[in-house]
């Protein structure tokens, strides 16, 4: 049976509490992982390992961090993601709400804007992929 959104949130929260040493109450759906929860780049590797184990899925880094788009001169100009790049991001990660990123599409802002909810949506999409493939 597919995991409910609440079950996904519970497991994501447990992984973030464990990896970042934050309190459960701090992990709200709206919290940004970098700004609010203090995640550093190395923590994402830890979070990925924990989520892979917890959900039994494989998470290629490029799927959560689309470096191939964010570092591609066809999609980035002067450190900002172009409108073509934004379209590419939307295609790749349709579950992300990019509205605030679109206001200031500076490449470095991409990771900073990711919220707990974004991570949950990402996991849900991976679980859907897994059950469709099963």
């Amino acid at each position: 049976m597919a995991a409910t959104s609440e079950e996904v949130f519970q497991k994501v929260r447990a992984a973030l509490v464990d990896a970042l040493g934050v309190d459960e109450e701090e992990v709200t759906p709206e919290a940004t992982m970098v700004g609010d929860l203090g995640a550093e780049s190395i923590d994402f590797l830890d979070i990925m390992f924990k989520l892979e184990q917890s959900f039994g899925i494989n998470i290629p880094r490029s799927e959560l961090f689309p470096d191939d788009i964010l570092n591609n001169p066809n999609y980035v100009q002067d450190g900002k993601v172009t409108s073509t790049g934004i379209s590419e991001l939307k295609k790749r990660m349709p579950y992300l709400d990019l509205s605030s990123f679109e206001q200031h599409p500076v490449v470095q802002n991409f990771v900073s804007m990711l919220t707990v909810n974004d991570l949950c949506k990402f996991i849900e999409s991976k679980l859907a992929e897994k059950s469709a493939g099963a």
Partner: peptide, 10 residues
């Protein structure tokens, strides 16, 4: 060795 991927290991 518990887990590994192209970026690191646990």
């Amino acid at each position: 060795l518990k887990d590994q991927n192209p970026h690191g290991a646990l």
